[in-house]
Simulated assay, not measured.
Amino acid sequence: MIEMIIEQRRRSLGGGMEVGRVLPFAKRRMVGPFIFFDHMGPLDLAPGIGRDVDVRPHPHIGLATVTYLFSGEIMHRDSLGYEQAIRPQEVNWMTAGSGITHSERFERARAVGDHLHGIQAWVALPDGEEEIAPSFSHHAGDDLPHWVDGGVSGHLIAGSAYGLTAGAQTRSPLFYAHLDMAPGATAEIPGGHKERALYISAGAVELGGTRYESGQMLVLGAAASRVTAQERSTVMVLGGEPVGERFIYWNFVSSSKDRLGQAAADWQAGRMKLPDADDAEFIPLPDGPAPSAPAMS
């Protein structure tokens, strides 16, 4: 059963870079612990692109960022000292916890050009773990179990589903998978979680007798269901258990509005460490005070 359809909204990140913002949505802020979902590209980046396309150093608290690419390459650097390129069918999993800063650079594109296409999601940390120590991990190969079944080629990005478990450490029950579907292929969307959704990254699918197109997220009920590709399609399936009310301000997520204000003050005052290679250029705090209510995108 489809509870809601969310259309991506185009958002500029500056420097000519646009994303399709899906979550948060005014009428549906989260799906399980997933509180943010951006569709990056598809976008051709020419050799010699300016540094204004890069995502400069910025902070996070209270969440884990999950970056996954279909094509292209992004260079990650963070305040823990990690420097890690992410490539297709790999995962950069960065747990912000009590606070971390990072940048995302298009260095390969700058050198030789690139075709960028992928998803960045945020997973809100559960109660009692919002302020854990920050950490970073990179996952590829066997950490992202792969299967092929009846015209469906799948990668499990995080959590447990389809009888498999991915390598990234998650802090609450969830699943997140990438399905490449041949025309006419049918795939099950795992049940067993209170909240689930699928997002069509490319192509078109049929569910419940209705056709849905690229750029749409279908928020589903808890029962398992099946989706059929109407053409060659790329589908992300995700879900999990709710973690409770969360507020968002800029790049911060917390169950406490006061904590959002403190994080903003720490960033503004320079109390959050920057990645060493990027100290000279960082993203400033948005104008105005931290809001007293969650910001909607």
Rank of each mutant, 00 (worst) to 15 (best):
A168L: 12
G159R: 00
G209Y: 05
Q262L: 08
D52F: 02
E195P: 01
E129V: 05
H146D: 06
D114V: 07
S292H: 06
E90Y: 02
P57N: 13
A158S: 05
V123T: 11
Q8V: 07
K273C: 03
A26Q: 08
G192C: 04
L69F: 09
P33L: 09
R21P: 01
I6T: 03
I248N: 11
A263L: 07
G203Y: 02
M40S: 01
I49H: 15
G221W: 02
E90T: 11
A264V: 14
P291C: 01
D287G: 15
G41S: 09
G221H: 06
G118V: 06
W93M: 11
M272P: 09
P275C: 09
G239T: 09
D276K: 02
R87N: 14
L220W: 00
V112D: 14
S214F: 01
V19A: 03
V31E: 00
I6S: 03
A204R: 10
A96F: 12
H155W: 14
L179K: 00
D78P: 08
F37M: 13
A124S: 15
Y82T: 10
A290I: 05
L43R: 14
V219E: 11
M94D: 03
D258Q: 13
G62F: 10
R28P: 09
M217D: 13
L260N: 12
S12Q: 09
T170Y: 00
A168Y: 08
R77S: 10
T65C: 04
P173G: 02
Y176S: 01
E90I: 00
T101C: 15
M17K: 10
F247L: 02
T210Y: 03
T165V: 11
H155R: 14
G221P: 04
H60C: 14
G261T: 10
Y176C: 03
G163K: 01
G159C: 01
E245W: 00
P284R: 15
V152W: 03
S12K: 08
L274I: 09
G113E: 04
G154I: 00
L80F: 04
H193Y: 15
R29A: 15
A121F: 07
D278F: 03
Q268K: 15
T65N: 06
I100S: 08
D149M: 10
V152C: 10
I248G: 02
F34I: 12
D78N: 08
L144W: 00
W250G: 11
M94S: 04
L116I: 12
